[in-house]
Design a protein around this nucleic acid. Sequence first.
DNA 1: CGCCAGGTTAGAG
DNA 2: CTCTAACATGGC
Length: 293
Amino acid sequence: MSAITVPVPKEFSFDEALTFLKRSPRELLHRVENETVSKAIRVGNTTAAFTVTFEKNKLHVRLLTDGLTPGQQYEVVAYIREWFDLDTDLKPFYALADKDKLLKDLVKQHYGYRIVGQPDLYESLTWAMLGQQINVAFAYTLKQHFVENFGATLQHGDQKYFLFPEPATVAVLTTDQLLPLQFSRQKATYAVTIAEAFANGNVSKESLQGLPLQEAKERLIKIKGVGNWTANYALMKTFRYPDAFPLEDAGLYNVVKKYKKLDRKPTADEMKKVFKKYKGWEAYATLYLWKSA
DNA sequence: CGCCAGGTTAGAG
DNA sequence: CTCTAACATGGC
């Protein structure tokens, strides 16, 4: 079995990443067992399963699928680098956070916590949409049903790996096929609309790559069902624009409410004021603030 | 049972 | 541009 080592930055915590990945027992797109993450992804025209562990200060990637070309192996490693957010230099953020009352303790407690991402923009956008206006636990239930019903699977040994559904698969669904999965009519419609946008090529990760945040956001918001919150969330998880963050997020409102000892929901202006301090690092500030919620 | 949850849209004022 | 109702369902 081939193994590949991947160096990580000093400010990286595999444990924090694992904690995040273990968030829901309903997650089908990866497994965490004995400090080992396993997952399958599509690379080119094939599917690759792999495991990731952390030993001697490095990630160790083991490919479970035989016969991958060097190019495909490279793609797997590139995916993992993106997934674990290994290419962001957190030093400037930590310098800023160390001087901030709200963040100071959080960044100490969770030192090395990064944005566990979703390198697939379609997955990211759909996942964000599923999470609109419901609690996270139920969002995972919806995702579980969605993946079980429409995602491809890969059997490796006694392990079954699920892949996120493809846009082309979802684009041709009727809302009636999604209602039994506990989707609301609205979410069912949104799911199909988002899939159509990707399936017909109107939106793709490649076409947004490198765009300024505002432009990327505008393109995503053209899709019905994708508002400011959803677009920011997806851009945060896929491209890690450091200043992409869901300002309207209920969790963030609650953190600020608590911090300012308010007896009501903070206003949008009050939220903006708090986040002004984190200019350029709003996404990471959000990540750590969610930890306190 | 009631309130709220990782919101968005369409329509009115 | 801002405000509001409707959507809609589970978790706690």
